[in-house]
Every structure is written in structure tokens, then in C-alpha cells.
Design a protein around this nucleic acid. Structure first.
Lengths: 323, 323
DNA sequence: TATGATGGCGTTAGCGCTAACAGCAACGGG
DNA sequence: CCCGTTGCTGTTAGCGCTAACGCCATCATA
């Protein structure tokens, strides 16, 4: 029995002959070692938790893909949990993952209060946060939204636009704030005028984007470009321009964010700011597994302390709506 | 220890006083029973496997959502696995799920050969197939594509169309075949002429849809309507019509399949045939848990034998492209 | 009063693995 | 010839839980 274990885990010394014999029997019996018995004995389960608001949201679906791929490559399986943006449910799934004794957790866009988040983080052997920060010493992967805002704004300024509007998305949105900040920075550094009325909050949907764009364009006819919170809002803005008889990009240039699939399919195709969501997930699971391994194999505080906070840089995809 | 177990699982007789005392201690210690130790003892892990080609594909993401929701509601956690449409990888993840001793598996669009599929199905306590059949006695949830094809075709016929083209998608596609069959049935029952050249296969992308639509419309100018394999192809057809100067829906009506998010956002908005992907997942996990429980609690062949094959009925969403 | 039939709780064993150590050959250097 | 060393394999104990049983009170029934 012990020898079998040694063969299967490839650890310890076993003669080639015995190894061969064991492998044959294993093959013949179709024997599969029980991961859960092993987990009980070793205190490592080879499982990770992935907590997202909603896997049906393409953003998180792609992140999940990145996470799963990385985990699979290293022999881990991942538990998928949806929180529905509900903090109570989030706590609940985190609890169930704890009972399942996962080796680590990737926690996306947590809606937990700072204290609850801290408690949750402490409860696990390893945690990586995505799109949410919690102090310097907890591993985190975020999108550099300020840079995104700067890229979009800088591109438009470079094309000669001076009066640039901003559909800033939901008031509480972290990414919206960051993008707006980038916009402000770039406008300021180009010494361009900024008007508060050029900034219009809106819901994150095409319809709400359309309405907000109508308000903005009617109220401030001088605008020649619009930066939109995300691509759905940008699509709404496109519809608004059509309604107002304003040509895109001739009369109004439009830039979106995220590069969702529709972005390339609407007419005119959207110029948009993208970050690889797949990479977001891949980096997160990379950080996580690094920590899991350190915890697992070298319990002695390795102190190799890799970067705890990774900020992914977005890039601008230039298409017809703002060439 | 045994009493604690009884309290936590709510089974067996425990006095109210003792229960209270146990619960207090559990609370104070922040004790979490180990799911894996329990799993080892009971041979039930409270975990399910979900195997999909690619979670980044919105179709499967929504199915996954349905599955996860149903599982969560019943206290199960789900392992997410991507196969990348690669049979070898599919076998591999199925193996790892087996080692994790999942209580059941939802297997989506399996690319396995019939024998491999059968072996995989036999290896688990419970399996439900989605979008793939494997004999009458293995539980399955599928989309009624024939009905979908009939709905799309019937709608067009009802609007007076007589010459209806069909962009039938990839040659090997199961759903494409079904939809085409529905088309044939409906055309026949309306005693309409059918031409082989009205049927044009194509890849499942917008670009390939565009090219196929160009071929079809140029070759058969008499067509007044196009049924498209899916919405992406339909978007391509829309572009093709624009290129050919043919108004949609005035000169050509277009119907797609799936109702992906773009469908409502393009102009004109797409008439399309939709089935709730969320429900697909929900039904699958429903069937699965039914079987898991039967296996688990009443080992005696309950023979309650609920329907093994569920076919979900699609519905037509009428929008501007084929009013 | 003897006789079950409970209700409440403890004991024992074992789920399937692995860590840690123990044993035993064979071998080479002193 | 002894002793350490290395290479291979077996033994023991225990990971944290629960199934199955056993034991003792208590209580209603014959």
C-alpha cells in the first residue's frame, strides 16, 4: 500500500521493477486514488475557489477561463461560486469553500465590507483579490483604470478634439472613478478646459447610455467627442447620435471601454479601451498558486515575497467610431 | 464528538440543552466541519462537476450560471472544467473529477466518441448530458432545434415569404442539422418549393456569415428571407445586405438563432430564436441532483425513473429584421 | 413487577490515504 | 570483520469525520 502511494506520487525510492508491476495493476483495475482521502492525510486538496459576482457576465467568464486554465495546468481544480453581488451570499460561499478546505481563493470584485473582507482573507491559506484592494500585504490584481482613462482621452486630444464629454457610469463605480481621474489628468496636462456639465453619470446599459448621451449632447452642443463608461453605454451613445442626426465619427467621436464582442460588430465599430480579462484571471491564479506552494512546501517563511499588487495595463483598440 | 456530529447534521436525538451548548462552542471556536473528512466517511462529497468546452463562451457561461444556482440552492459546490473542445482534455478532466469523488457531473456538448462517452458516464454515480445524446437511459437535456427551425420558418411563411434561404452553419453541427430539418418540415407542410442551392453551409462567425450570405443572395436573387445558423451569422448577413444595397427587412428578412446580446443592439435589431440557456443549466442540475439523491439515500432502485431526456422548447423573439 | 420501548449520549472502528519511522539486505571503506 | 551508508519495502499511526452499535436512565404498558 505504501509502495503504491510512492509510485503514484513519484516520491521516495522504488525499484523500476516494482514500479512497473504497480503501474500494471493500477492500470488493470482502473484504480483512481481518492483525492479526498489524500487531502485528509496531507492537508492539501488540490482545489481552489473562484468567487465571482456572476459567471454569466462575460467579463467574469473570461476571467474564470484564465483562472481555470492556470489551475488546470498546475493540476488544480476550481470551485466556481456566484455571489450575485450579495454580501451575505458571498460570506456564505466563502464559508462553504472553507469547509471544502480549498488551498486558496480568487475573489473577484468583492462586495464585502472592509472588516468582513479582512476576516475572509485571514480564514484561508491563500487569497488573491481581483478588482478590489485591501491593504498592501494582500495579493491583488487590478486594472489600471486611470491609465485607461488617460489613453482614451489622450487619443482624442491627439486627434484635435478639445471639448470632450464623459459618460461616467454608476456613481459608486470604482473603475468609473479611475477612468474619470485619467480623463482629468490628461485634459489638465493638455491645458484644456474642463466643464462639470461635460461629465454625466449613467447606468451601465445601452439604454441608459443613450439617454445620458442625449442629455449631454443637447446640453453641450460644443462637444465633439464622448468617452463612455463602457461599450454598452457607447452603443447607446451611438444610437443617440443617430437620433440627433450627428454623424459618427465625423461630428462626434466615441470611445468605449472593455472591448466586449458587440464593440466590433456595431456600425461604426467602436474604438475602445481593452484589458485582457483572460490575463486578469491568469495573473490572479498565478499569484495564488505561488502563495499556495510557498505555504505548502516551504512552511518556513520563504519571504520571496513576490509583488503583492499587480496592475494590468489596458490598451486602446482604434476602430471607426474614433479613428 | 459524536454528539457534535449529531448536532451539526441535525440527525439523531440530542437534548435541546446539549444542542445549545454545542452550538455555542462551535460558534465561539469558529469551528468549520471538514467537508473532506465527512466525505471520506460518508462517501458523499457535496460536490458536482461541470464540464464545458469553454466558459468564456456566453452560451456555456449562462448554462453554468443555471447549474451553479441550482447546486448552491441544494448545498452543493461545483467544479468548473473547460475542455477546449479537446477530447483528450475532456477525458483528463473527467478523470480528475473522478479522483475528487464528485457526486455527479453535468457534461456539456461532449466531443467524446460514443464509446468513451459511455465509459465516462458509467464511471460516475450520476451524469447528465447537455446538448448531446447517448442512448435513452442516460439523462439528457437538449434544445429542440427542430422546433426552433420550424418556428423561424413558420414565422416567415406566415408573413408571406415563399423563397426562404438557409445559412446552415458548420457541416457537422448537430443543432444546424436539427434547425435545417425543422425548416424542411415547415416548408414541406406549406407546400413551398425547396431548392438545394438555397441552403448554404458556413462557419459560425459573423465574417463567414457575411461571405455565405453574399454567395447565397448573388446566386439566388429570388430569395426574400434568410434563416441564419446563429446570430453571429445573421449579423454577417446584415452586413452583406448592406453591401448589396438590399434593405432589411424590406427586401430581405433575416432571422437568427440564440438571441445573443448583440442581437438586440445591431440595426435593425435581429429577430431570433431563443432558448433559455439558464434554464438549460437549471434543468440539467435538477435532473442530476434528483439522481444523486436517489443514489445516495434510497440505494434500493427507487425506479421513480423521472424522464431521462428533456427537450427545451425555444421561442421566437420578433424584432425589426423580420417583423 | 417484569417488559419492552424509547430518548440521550458514548465507544469503536474504519473511510483511503500518507508521514514517519523501522527493518533489512547489499555494499564499500576502514 | 565491523560499521556506516544507501536502496528498497513494510509497519504503525492518524488526518477528521460518521455508521453502527451499546449502554444507561426513564417511562408507559401489560
Amino acid at each position: 500500500m505504501m509502495t503504491v502511494s510512492r509510485v503514484i506520487n513519484g516520491r521516495g525510492d522504488v525499484s523500476a521493477a516494482t514500479r512497473q508491476r504497480v503501474l500494471e495493476v493500477v492500470e488493470r483495475l482502473g484504480y483512481r486514488p481518492s483525492s479526498i482521502a489524500r487531502g485528509l492525510a496531507t492537508r492539501h486538496t488540490g482545489t481552489l475557489g473562484l468567487v465571482v459576482p456572476d459567471i454569466a457576465n462575460p467579463f467574469f467568464a473570461e476571467v474564470a477561463r484564465g483562472v481555470e486554465e492556470g489551475a488546470y495546468a498546475q493540476g488544480y481544480n476550481v470551485f466556481l461560486c456566484n455571489t450575485d453581488e450579495d454580501p451575505a451570499r458571498e460570506l456564505d460561499v466563502l464559508g462553504s469553500l472553507e469547509e471544502k478546505r480549498v488551498d486558496g481563493v480568487v475573489l473577484c470584485s468583492s462586495r464585502l465590507s472592509d472588516e468582513d473582507l479582512q476576516m475572509a482573507v485571514d480564514a484561508y491559506p491563500a487569497v488573491v483579490l481581483v478588482n478590489r484592494r485591501a491593504g498592501q500585504h494582500v495579493a491583488t490584481v487590478v486594472v489600471d483604470d486611470v491609465l485607461g482613462g488617460r489613453l482614451a482621452t489622450g487619443h482624442l486630444i491627439g486627434r484635435g478634439h478639445r471639448a470632450i464629454g464623459f459618460l461616467s457610469g454608476p456613481q459608486g463605480s470604482h473603475s468609473g472613478q479611475g477612468r474619470l481621474e485619467g480623463y482629468a489628468i490628461e485634459m489638465a496636462s493638455a491645458r484644456l478646459r474642463r466643464e462639470t456639465r461635460w461629465i454625466e453619470p449613467c447606468g451601465p446599459t445601452a439604454e441608459q447610455g443613450r439617454l445620458a448621451a442625449l442629455r449631454l449632447l443637447r446640453g453641450s452642443g460644443e462637444l465633439t467627442a464622448l468617452i463612455c463608461y463602457n461599450d454598452l453605454v457607447a452603443v447607446g451613445a451611438l444610437h443617440a447620435c443617430r437620433e440627433l442626426g450627428r454623424n459618427v465619427p465625423g461630428s462626434v467621436a466615441i470611445v468605449g471601454f472593455d472591448d466586449i464582442p458587440v464593440a466590433a460588430l456595431v456600425t461604426p465599430a467602436l474604438t475602445t479601451c481593452r484589458v485582457s480579462r483572460h490575463e486578469l484571471g491568469a495573473r490572479a491564479v498565478g499569484l495564488l498558486l505561488e502563495r499556495v506552494r510557498r505555504e505548502g512546501y516551504a512552511a518556513g517563511e520563504g519571504e520571496g515575497a513576490s509583488t503583492a499588487v499587480v496592475a494590468l495595463e489596458p490598451e486602446l483598440v482604434v476602430r471607426a467610431s474614433a479613428p
